[in-house]
Simulated assay, not measured.
Amino acid sequence: MTRPSNATRVTIVDDHALFAESVALTLENEGYQVRRIDLADSRATLASVLAAILRGNPRIVLLDLELGRVGDGMRLITPLASNGVAVIVVTGSVGGTWRGECLRRGAKAVMTKTSPLEEVIATVRRARDGLPLMSREDRDRLMTEAANGQDQDREMRSRLERLTRREMEVLGALMRGAQVRDIARESVVSEATVRTQVKSILAKLELSSQLSAVGAAYKVGWRPPGEATT
Rank of each mutant, 00 (worst) to 15 (best):
G31T: 04
V23S: 09
M74I: 14
L202G: 00
K219L: 10
A24K: 14
R99M: 11
M74L: 10
A184C: 04
S82A: 12
M134G: 04
S93F: 05
I77F: 05
Y218K: 15
I121M: 12
L174V: 03
A24F: 02
A47E: 15
E119G: 10
E145F: 07
M168H: 13
T196M: 06
K199L: 04
G130D: 01
I183W: 01
V49F: 11
S82K: 13
A109E: 04
E227T: 14
I37R: 02
E167G: 01
G130Y: 02
D140Y: 05
M111K: 10
D72E: 10
Q150P: 00
R126E: 12
K204M: 02
P132Q: 06
N148S: 11
Q150C: 00
A217I: 12
S115H: 12
V61K: 01
A147L: 14
Y32G: 01
R176P: 00
G215Q: 14
V61Q: 04
A52S: 15
V220L: 08
V90A: 09
R69Y: 04
T193Q: 08
G31L: 02
T144C: 04
N6I: 10
V189Y: 11
G172Q: 03
L25D: 12
E137D: 14
P132I: 00
R9H: 06
F19M: 09
L117C: 11
I183D: 01
R136Q: 14
V120W: 05
A228R: 12
R75C: 03
I201V: 09
S135K: 07
E206N: 15
R104A: 13
L62K: 03
A122K: 11
N29V: 01
D129I: 00
P225G: 05
L27E: 03
T164S: 14
E21T: 13
S135M: 09
N57A: 12
V85T: 09
M168Q: 15
L76R: 07
T123N: 06
T78V: 01
S158E: 15
V188N: 15
R166I: 08
D41K: 06
P79E: 08
E28Y: 00
L54K: 13
G31E: 04
G226H: 06
G56L: 13
L67A: 10
